[in-house]
Design a protein around this nucleic acid. Structure first.
Lengths: 188, 188
DNA sequence: TCCATCATGTAAACAGTTACATGATTGC
DNA sequence: GCAATCATGTAACTGTTTACATGATGGA
């Protein structure tokens, strides 16, 4: 087994997190352009990535070359926009990727820049510590409010899964806020 | 302003997430070797990265060249191990990085491969959906148990901050488990 | 002695970001 | 007609991963 570099960060069906998300978005919105996929990522409150053009356009070309998506037409305007849809192989690859839901790598403790910083707080003096933690709590409350509104709007629009996903983000923010309050209580 | 590429993903003090974590670990454990830093990352239940040698060794060389860490001695055995410690500039850079705790990019909704997959669950048939969600719940409960034990062990050892950080990871897992149960209830 | 593990690296591949370029469309 | 923005890209850079290499140490 010489080269296994292709498997870097690729769960199940051989897709990275970004590839799986793009494939899933195309599947939900097809036929759609790379730009539409980008927009979907940008309006989401949970920004997994920057959703930059430099990431999406080359990635969708790769998916096309791998036979997972296919051009189904053009937008018609002068922008040479390509409307993509899933191929059968693409649909299967998406299914395999979704099936990694129960993998330890998927369920395990997700990364969190907040927790990651608090881990090194012992070196700070108590006053700075307290100021920072209070400021973080304020920011978290604002984030929580934003996501709550977003979730309510989606629920009102009848988008079941989207509102559930937002509810998940909301729970995550709420848990982090409660945790910060605990950190303040214990160390402040 | 031509080139701003150096600022990619660098918050506050101009450190990436991994650089900040390494600097924080060196600050907490100094003097210590790159290998000791790697081990710290590996035993943590929240694996931000793979903590591979190919990441840590070059990164610590970069930090050394930037004057943030400095060789304070060697391990003495035949392995030419270098013991690093923070410089004054390193201590300041770490402080600036920790001060980004209250930034929106830090507090905002963190990425989650679990939520990311559920977002595209609408395309799956109900039976598969249910099976996967149940399996994920089982896996989450196991993860939760592991982290709980880890947190208790740290608390027993009197490591205040480490146990608080583990408590944060625990809260995050618990929130995700409750959320998965909600997803099952609503869509199952 | 031998073997597993500890420990320190290096090289190639690759994914994602920033910044730039370019043309089309829309609103004023 | 002009500006802002929409939309589709490209190029350079960089950080991380995988896999490999190499020597030291400790236990059977």
């Amino acid at each position: 087994m010489k080269r296994k570099a292709r498997s870097a960060g690729r769960a199940g069906g051989g897709l990275t997190e970004l590839e799986g998300s793009v494939l899933g978005t195309v599947g939900a919105r097809e036929p759609c352009t790379p730009y539409a996929v980008r927009r979907d990522f940008q309006i989401s409150p949970s920004r997994y990535w920057s959703a930059s053009a430099g990431a999406i356009y080359p990635l969708m070309r790769r998916l096309e070359h791998r036979g997972l998506i296919r051009v189904q037409g053009t937008t018609g305007d002068g922008r040479r926009g390509r409307l993509y849809g899933l191929t059968l192989a693409g649909r299967r690859a998406l299914g395999r990727w979704l099936r990694t839901l129960a993998d330890p790598a998927t369920t395990g403790v997700p990364p969190d820049p907040l927790r990651n910083r608090v881990a090194f707080f012992a070196t700070l003096d108590p006053a700075t510590r307290r100021t920072l933690l209070d400021a973080a709590a304020v920011e978290l409350r604002a984030d929580l409010e934003r996501v709550r509104e977003y979730a309510l709007r989606q629920k009102a629009d009848g988008r079941t899964y989207e509102s559930l996903v937002s509810a998940g983000a909301e729970r995550m923010l709420a848990a982090r806020l409660e945790w910060i309050v605990e950190v303040i209580r214990v160390t402040g």
